[in-house]
């Protein structure tokens, strides 16, 4: 086996600055979608509405930025939409006892139609809306760091949301494991009855978790619509809400796990872009890659979990 060839391929498709930058960029919405899934799943809620929340976030990000000529207003509008959609989702599914999966399915389809409707009615265009008046989020150059070779270009010069996503991963970790509220959230997720008897208001904790998930998802949406190109495209979430759920499963429900599994998806997408440039195979197969990777990752993950469980059982039987 000729390793130099392998190294060459690795360097070409993965380990060079441009690819790694692409990986970090493309992973950002997945990280945020993953946190959206994480915060609700740790509170014991099956939230499949992330996809719809991302779409709303993307749309309101563009709308806020367009009408106020400021990317920050776009960010604010998107986050507000996340709070409102998350709040309504929580109100209907937790308080009004609507079946949470049915509610999620309905919200996702609703978000799709509503954003198409709004694009046509408010901006008067179909398909995609872009305009020079939509302000994009400016790239942030980190002083000192940006001048260091390799690390500088790798870690500096992204838009605000990329850094925010990294910070939120750390904050979520601290929240879950270092604060009493995080303890409450985990208790509610692991055993709601026990948490109730300890005097934790289960309903309130879950309400908060769903609203937080709405904000995370809306940030993912705003990154899609304002982070790179300033435009809203119909159905631009493209399954990232669900990929976020997969990433959360794959990352074991841990913030750091979510971050690194999202990077994997970032790599898959970057390699896709690379291959697209080289015209090795039809573009349609390349576009499939993230979805195939999600299926594959879930399969591998659950197979390994099953094996681990079996091994643990055998060990227990052996000891007994």
């Amino acid at each position: 086996m000729d390793f130099s060839g392998l190294l060459d391929i690795l360097q070409r498709y993965v380990f060079n600055i441009a690819n790694l930058q692409g990986m970090l960029r493309l992973a950002t919405p997945v990280v945020l979608a993953g946190l959206c899934a994480l915060i609700t799943s740790r509170a014991g809620i099956l939230n499949i509405a992330g996809e719809g929340m991302i779409l709303f976030g993307a749309w309101f990000g563009v709308a806020g930025s367009y009408f106020f000529r400021s990317a920050w207003m776009g960010l604010l509008a998107a986050m507000l939409s996340g709070l409102v959609v998350g709040g309504l989702f929580a109100l209907f599914s937790l308080k009004f006892r609507a079946h949470i999966i049915i509610m999620g399915i309905a919200i996702n389809i609703f978000a799709n139609s509503a954003t198409i409707f709004l694009t046509r009615e408010v901006f008067g265009v179909a398909g995609a809306f872009s305009d020079p008046n939509i302000a994009g989020l400016p790239p942030i150059e980190i002083p000192i760091l940006k001048d260091i070779p390799v690390l500088g270009p790798l870690l500096s010069g992204y838009t605000f949301i990329v850094y925010l996503a990294w910070i939120l991963v750390a904050l979520t970790y601290i929240f879950l494991y270092r604060t009493p509220w995080g303890l409450h959230l985990r208790a509610v997720g692991e055993n709601p009855q026990a948490a109730e008897t300890l005097g934790i208001n289960v309903q309130r904790v879950r309400f908060g978790a769903v609203m937080a998930s709405g904000v995370f998802a809306s940030l993912a949406g705003v990154y899609l619509s304002l982070g790179h190109l300033q435009m809203f495209t119909e159905q631009m979430a493209a399954g990232r809400g669900f990929i976020g759920m997969a990433v959360n499963t794959f990352g074991g429900g841990e913030p750091v796990g979510v971050f690194f599994s999202s990077l994997l998806f970032g790599i898959v997408e970057t390699i896709g872009w690379r291959l697209q440039g080289e015209r090795i195979m039809p573009v349609y197969f390349i576009s499939m890659l993230p979805y195939l990777a999600t299926l594959l990752a879930l399969t591998v993950f659950t197979l390994r979990k099953q094996q681990a469980k079996k091994a643990a059982l055998e060990r227990a039987a052996h000891e007994a």
């Binding site: 499949i48 996809e51 999966i101 493209a238 399954g239 669900f242 759920m245 997969a246 499939m288 979805y291 195939l292 999600t294 299926l295 879930l298």
Partner: peptide, 9 residues
């Protein structure tokens, strides 16, 4: 839910 959505794409 995740897998059927992925197969849609």
């Amino acid at each position: 839910i995740i897998t059927t959505i992925m197969t849609n794409y």
